[in-house]
């Protein structure tokens, strides 16, 4: 069995006092612009993947902020890296890099958590 403990969202409430912020801190370290998101939804509105399937890139950011890594790791697969979101973001967030960082980190954490 693989141990994806870092993916567990825990309870249904947002537990601010202890959630797994590893991913969030990682993303903020390499893409500090992410911190300025105001959840305007411009990215989701324009998103090429969101035009074809149920995908919400703004929520990716929200889940990241709340440590909801499980949902995140499934959803983020859908992005096509087209970069449209980055072109409309009023906060100039480098969303494409945020997605790259999340994908990278999740795949790293998955390998780390695998029992040898």
């Amino acid at each position: 069995m693989e141990d994806f403990s870092f993916l567990n969202p825990g309870s249904r409430q947002i537990d601010f006092d202890n959630f797994d912020d590893r991913l969030l801190l990682y993303v903020l370290e390499y893409e500090p612009s992410f911190v300025t998101c105001i959840s305007c939804g411009g990215c989701t509105a324009t998103c090429s993947a969101g035009n074809l399937t149920n995908f919400n890139v703004r929520k990716i950011g929200l889940w990241l902020r709340r440590g909801e890594t499980e949902k995140l790791s499934q959803e983020i697969e859908k992005c096509m890296f087209c970069g449209k979101c980055t072109l409309v973001c009023p906060r100039d967030i480098n969303i494409r890099n945020v997605i790259l960082l999340i994908k990278k980190r999740i795949s790293e954490l998955k390998t780390e958590n695998q029992p040898v």
Partner: peptide, 18 residues
């Protein structure tokens, strides 16, 4: 209306299989 991206941005990001 609806079509996937051409794929080039993914390639630039290295995601060739995708």
């Amino acid at each position: 209306e609806k079509a996937p991206c051409c794929g080039r941005p993914l390639m630039l990001a290295g995601q060739h299989d995708a």
